[in-house]
Design a protein around this nucleic acid. Sequence first.
DNA 1: GGCTTGCTTGGAGTGCACTCGAACTCGGTA
DNA 2: TACCGAGTTCGAGTGCACTCCAAGCAAGCC
Lengths: 167, 167
Amino acid sequence: MATPAHVESRLRTCSEVFDHPVGEPDRTARHTISEVAAASGLTAHTLRWYERIGLLDPVDRAAGGQRRYCDADLHRLAFLGRLRLTGMSVADMLRYVDMARRGEQTYEDRRQLLVAQREEVRQRIADLQATLSVLDYKIDLYAGRIADSTGAPAVCTYYRGEEEQSA
Amino acid sequence: MATPAHVESRLRTCSEVFDHPVGEPDRTARHTISEVAAASGLTAHTLRWYERIGLLDPVDRAAGGQRRYCDADLHRLAFLGRLRLTGMSVADMLRYVDMARRGEQTYEDRRQLLVAQREEVRQRIADLQATLSVLDYKIDLYAGRIADSTGAPAVCTYYRGEEEQSA
DNA sequence: GGCTTGCTTGGAGTGCACTCGAACTCGGTA
DNA sequence: TACCGAGTTCGAGTGCACTCCAAGCAAGCC
């Protein structure tokens, strides 16, 4: 049922893996730090720093001591990027990663952490959507598309009066 | 057409104004710094700092030098809070406020700034919603509600394989 | 051999947005 | 009069998340 024979099974590029981190990750250490930096949007500095503080497990090395990242590293980076996007602190990401290292016994703890984070994300989306309508209103106001101070029926006047600090 | 006579027209409280900054703001300086702190969620320290750096115009003072905020100050604070929520930097908020001080001639500039910010907010919402589905997937995974490695038809396997760092 | 490029390290530095401290003033009350 | 609590000032400090630096190494090329 896995990969049909006629599908080429070459190793995927760094960006391919990072942008679409699905399936069983290949464990071949083969991506250089600059490839991973380009794919992830993080700097090489930041990638080394993530490893130093323990967000990434020690990365494999080529002869000469250079880092070679495998697909599993990219999977983790991609997910950490998602968590960071939600506003999760590095300290909390570390907590999550430490749990992941402790294996199945932390499934429930991890689930709870993610459920809490999901709630925060939902709240954040709601806040942003409320902000969006304030921005819409202000933009229309500046474009002169809102007849001001005429008794237009029930027009939203959010933040009217903030425009000019005269008086 | 304005305020019918039978509607009581007492001055609104600090929280009322901050939470619902609509209509022409009253210019009576009457809210203490701790009231504004409670209503806005900012600390008194931060309110003074906002004024020091110019995000707020110099606030009126009671005899004795204590600050008394008016409704217009609260309107501005409420809108600044919205901008901050979008991730706008204090430096950019300052730019916006400086434009507002220069009056009508900056309407177009301000509109453009807000349009750009609106685009960022939309992008941010999209990112967060994508993250939400990743979180949903992971949460289900941890709850054991996803039959792993069985050939379930086209199940999303985002980030599968990131769970355990064994191997 | 000499040069360039890309990588290595640990520690120090940066920028942001607050956050706090210390010393002081004011108005009210027991 | 003594004290309290809420407020004042400005400069300094904090925590976070990078970001950079200097010195060095290894491989590849002219």
